[in-house]
């Protein structure tokens, strides 16, 4: 069970990669798009283990931007992503 402040690792990845990668300059007739991107971010992790040893990873980017006496332990995630091309039929 993940702490309610955290979301699944899959959601973090989905949200980080949900970017508008298209840049269109209609006036000059130029169309660009991002074909590869690398994103690095500190994250807090909540790693829970059930009775069978199954690990569930909960994560969240830093929530507060204030200095506190006890700072959260920030781990780091770097994702390199590329433009998704749907596989050809039958692959």
């Amino acid at each position: 069970m993940i702490d309610e402040a955290f979301i699944s690792f899959r959601e973090i990845v989905d949200k980080l990669l949900d970017i508008p990668g298209d840049f269109t300059d209609e006036e000059n007739g130029v169309h660009s798009y991002i074909y590869e991107i690398e994103i690095g971010t500190p994250v807090e992790l909540d790693i829970s283990v059930d009775e069978n040893g199954k690990v569930t990873i909960g994560s969240i980017p830093p929530m507060y931007r204030v200095d506190t006496s006890f700072l959260p332990s920030y781990h780091s995630v770097t994702i390199k992503a590329e433009k998704y091309t749907a596989p050809e039929h039958g692959e």
């Binding site: 798009y33 991107i37 781990h75 780091s76 995630v77 770097t78 994702i79 390199k80 433009k83 998704y84």
Partner: peptide, 24 residues
């Protein structure tokens, strides 16, 4: 798995190529 569905309506989507995680 969800990417293929997402790509139907959103032609420009991104797939993870490499992932690095630093753990304390």
């Amino acid at each position: 798995e969800t990417l293929a569905i997402k790509a139907i309506n959103k032609p420009l989507t991104y797939t993870v190529k490499d992932l690095a995680i630093d753990l304390n």
